[in-house]
């Protein structure tokens, strides 16, 4: 290890501080006692759907379409989750079904 224990603790503390800043900042800037600006209220209503879309893409960010399995297992996995969910509307079934299909695909097929 190149770092001393103190340096390690400072480094980890910086990561904690950075993470907490990103989580607490909106609540500090727009405290619940004061009325939140209309524009921020609008964003608060609109952002969730967009952010969850962003999270899906974030999960798939390391998939390469040009090489390896070309993202086919991921595509099939997502399709199975979506179809199961539209059909049965049971959260755990959709997630378990899609994940098992995906694991079988990458372990046995690709």
């Amino acid at each position: 290890m190149t770092m001393t224990l103190t340096q390690q603790i400072i480094t980890i503390a910086m990561v904690v501080l950075g993470t907490m800043l990103t989580r607490f900042l909106p609540f500090i800037v727009f405290p619940s006692g004061k009325p939140t600006p209309k524009y921020v209220q609008y964003l608060g209503k609109m952002l969730p759907s967009a952010v969850i879309g962003l999270l899906i893409i974030y999960c798939l960010k390391d998939v390469s379409l040009q090489s390896g399995s070309h993202g086919i297992p991921e595509f099939i996995g997502v399709a199975v989750v979506a179809l199961l969910h539209v059909w049965k509307k049971m959260m755990l079934l959709s997630i378990a079904g899609g994940t098992i299909v995906y694991m079988m695909l990458i372990q046995l097929v690709f």
């Binding site: 909106p26 964003l43 952010v51 974030y58």
Partner: peptide, 26 residues
């Protein structure tokens, strides 16, 4: 050892939390 770098890298990687906070204000 570079604590400032660690802080800024964290802010960049975790910037999406800002959107979570705005969505959860209410």
């Amino acid at each position: 050892f570079n604590p400032i770098n660690a802080l800024f890298l964290t802010l960049m990687v975790n910037a999406r939390h800002l959107f979570y906070g705005i969505s959860m204000l209410d």
